[in-house]
Design a protein around this nucleic acid. Structure first.
Lengths: 123, 123
DNA sequence: CAGGATCCAAGAAGATACTG
DNA sequence: CAGTATCTTCTTGGATCCTG
């Protein structure tokens, strides 16, 4: 996740930091799965095809670190841990909806740009 | 930039694809620099501390591929190439402003979450 | 069940030298 | 000036084994 410079953080840096965190391999999928109801580790792994145990753990920790999800441990046997989206996470979800809207409205020009580029260069 | 599956692309996949592209090391900085006026290669490299020639080239190509910036070559001596933000890029910029707003409004809770996490674990 | 620890492979990024 | 080519380094992520 690279080095950060809290002392000289500009808006650009902050945005990049956020985009970098959300744009990693699995965060969005985990956030999506956790959005509606509390979820457990196994359930998440089954719901997200291809994610490894390690990456699920890492992704959950990072999201928890940012306060986007909460982690609740129940001292039962067998152990039970629930992950749930926090209010902060939900508000971020709303903000991200702006990007979803943009994608819906611009999927077409985006696709044409890619095709044009592919034709122009050795695509 | 990983494998993509055009056939089974869900909304989640598309959003991740976008976040992944914007969340890389340099894209945001380049977009920021190019936002106001046409810029040239050298100028961009001087304006973005730490970026290498190679990464500037790669980042510019990727942004051009997505149609977010345009590239114009003037057949002069010495050669002159101008990079400029496209309408598509500008509209995306507007969408990203939603995230900037979210950051401004939630920078505080975000910071507290990180500190709490650091204290709870071996920070 | 919910992970922690370790090892390894692939891709991203940096450094450097060279060119039309 | 605006790159390309090549080599090396660093970072992510996957596979596997182990534990409370």
């Amino acid at each position: 996740m690279s080095v950060r410079h809290p002392e000289v953080t500009t808006t650009c840096d902050e945005v990049r930091d956020l985009l970098e965190r959300l744009g990693d391999r699995w965060s969005i999928y985990v956030l999506y799965e956790v959005a509606d109801a509390p979820r457990r580790f196994r359930g998440l792994q089954r719901a997200i095809p291809g994610i490894s145990q390690r990456m699920l753990t890492l992704t959950l920790r990072r999201l928890e670190e940012q306060g986007l999800i909460t982690r609740t441990v129940y001292a039962t046997i067998p152990p039970q841990v629930e992950y749930e989206m926090s209010d902060l996470g939900r508000s971020l979800g709303t903000a991200v909806l702006g990007l979803v809207t943009w994608l819906r409205e611009n999927g077409e020009p985006l696709e044409r740009a890619r095709e044009r580029f592919a034709r122009a260069h050795g695509g």
